[in-house]
Write a protein that binds this DNA or RNA. Structure first.
Length: 401
DNA sequence: TCTGGGGTCCTAGGACCC
DNA sequence: TCTGGGGTCCTAGGACCC
């Protein structure tokens, strides 16, 4: 989806069309400022104040980052994941709006439903992105897929008023890269034989899975484009990046990817975390931290209960004022979705982590999830090594002593 | 200029078992 | 007293993605 979060807001406030708008920010106080009617009584209307004219800017956008910027805002070098304070400097006239998660989720469901009505084999990749395997959709091969891509674009626009960009290719790897060739509201078809002309000139960072670290390491080795990568000896790549990553790099540089489009998957973990308005100290701000900690546990527990999961690995995450992160976890004999159990176990984890530095973030995670219904089917048997039934020795494999 | 929140997957060492 | 070779699970950190 094109500039998804921002586009959703533009549907509501069409008067902002064409203006630099950034979505994000972070603090509730920003919402209050933006969504208050001027006299505080009427309907809550956003006040479209350029970010630079915010009184006490830092208090309002705080530690927030940009989730999405409109294409007009991107002209100023503003982009997702950038801190709001920096964005305000680069583009002082930008209008800032908070994310409306409910509305974003509603449009996300709507566009995905529209797609599955046409092409049922769809994989979720977050709120604003999907993979579609339309190999077996009638008419899917016409004009290399362009006809179906156009139909999907039109159907989504009719249902939501939103535009998207579609890449069509023989596999997911190439389709993902193709989807960026013609943004916004574009379609791009990449055939296997286009590898050399369309893919090899791109920077290695365009490969899904090569991020800042690998990109930098490759650059230091003189490998900049995907073509450069394809030219490397696989053994050399494995020497620098390990067996598995090295071999993978070689394959993707040659456009090879046989990963299937997976339509269903089970969650592995659920978590809640929060960055504080100011750094907090474990001793001096004990009461406040404790309140936040309990609240995070409560919210994870609610998420688990609402979605019907239990998990046995309880973990915490801390981020210190120097931005370094620490995690601790503890695995229970029996999976849980109970807030008090999570709070108690997370409390034990907290005792094992250094607390001298001030903290900027605290998070709580529950992993090793299983569906509550599946867990109950097993008769509530603790999933643990401690009370596994003793195994009968197999005479063929039993050790001699 | 400081850097969100929610995820997945991988690696590596150690405990423990046979 | 020192020495195998599997295998699984747990834990901590980190890369990466949307």
């Amino acid at each position: 989806m094109d500039a998804f979060f921002a586009s959703v807001e533009l549907l509501r406030y069409p008067q902002l069309k064409g203006l630099p708008v950034v979505i994000g920010g972070g603090r509730r106080r920003a919402d209050d400022l933006l969504l208050q009617s001027p006299d505080g009584t009427g309907p809550r209307e956003p006040r479209f104040i350029p970010v630079a004219e915010f009184p006490l800017l830092k208090d309002y956008v705080g530690r927030g980052v940009i989730t999405t910027a409109t294409y007009a805002a991107r002209q100023f070098g503003v982009g997702s994941a950038m801190g709001m304070m920096k964005a305000a400097r680069l583009c002082p006239q930008a209008i800032v709006l908070p994310v409306d998660f409910d509305e974003v989720r509603r449009y996300s469901r709507l566009f995905k439903h529209t797609i599955t009505e046409i092409a049922p084999v769809m994989q979720d990749r977050g709120v604003d992105e999907v993979y579609i395997d339309f190999t077996d959709v009638p008419g899917g091969q016409r004009e290399g897929g362009r006809v179906l891509a156009r139909l999907i674009q039109k159907s989504i626009f009719d249902a939501t008023g939103l535009t998207c960009s579609i890449g069509v290719a023989p596999n997911r790897l190439l389709a993902k890269m193709a989807s960026e060739f013609n943004k916004p509201n574009g379609i791009s078809i990449v055939y296997a034989e286009d590898l050399q002309s369309k893919i090899w000139p791109l920077n290695v960072r365009k490969i899904n899975g090569i991020g800042p670290k690998a990109g930098e390491k490759l650059a230091a080795l003189g490998v900049h484009t995907i073509g450069d990568l394809a030219a490397q000896d696989p053994q050399w790549l494995m020497g620098h990046f390990g067996q598995s990553t090295g071999a993978w790099m070689h394959r993707v540089a040659w456009g090879q990817d046989d990963s299937p489009v997976v339509t269903e998957s089970e969650p592995v973990s659920m978590s809640r975390e929060t960055t504080f308005e100011r750094d907090l100290h474990a001793v001096r701000d004990r009461a406040e931290l404790s309140r936040i900690f309990t609240d995070l546990c409560q919210r994870v527990a609610e998420d688990l209960q609402r979605k019907g999961y239990v998990g046995k690995t309880i973990g915490i995450k801390l981020r210190y004022d120097d931005f370094k992160t620490a995690t601790r976890d503890h695995t229970l004999p029996t999976p849980t979705q109970d807030a008090a159990t999570i709070r108690h176990t997370a409390g034990l984890c907290l005792k094992r982590v250094p607390l001298e530095r001030r903290l900027r973030l605290l998070g709580v995670r529950v992993g090793a999830l299983v569906r509550l219904s599946d867990h109950l089917l097993l008769g509530d048997v603790p999933v643990s090594t401690t009370n596994r039934p003793p195994r009968q020795p197999d005479p063929h494999t039993a050790p001699l002593f």
